[in-house]
């Protein structure tokens, strides 16, 4: 989780990623940030994020992002 928060803070510093659950709904992460985020997460966690996973439910909070990462890691 700490690694993910670091990535998020590097991409968009102005947010409290521990508590925020509206990263997409409140436009804190726009499409450009999502592009960077996907590239960084894939690199860091050695997974592939398919486009079908790019939806608000997965990107609205650090927790939901982490859950998606863990799921994709399990699926291999």
């Amino acid at each position: 989780m700490d690694r993910l928060i670091e990535i998020l803070e590097d991409i968009q510093p102005d947010a409290d990623y521990e508590t925020c659950t509206t990263l997409i709904d409140d436009h804190i992460l726009g499409s450009l940030q999502i592009i960077s985020l996907v590239a960084e997460i894939e690199d860091e966690f050695d997974i592939t994020i398919p486009t079908v996973e790019i939806k608000p439910e997965n990107f609205n909070s650090a927790q939901s992002l982490m859950a998606m990462i863990e799921r994709l890691e399990d699926e291999g």
Binding site: D10, I11, S31, L32, Q33, I35, S36, V38, A39, E40
Partner: peptide
Amino acid sequence: KKLTKNARKKLGRDYGPMPAS
């Protein structure tokens, strides 16, 4: 994705995702 990763290293946080987008 490869372009974005390389561009982020060279262009930094703000401009990294620009070429692909």
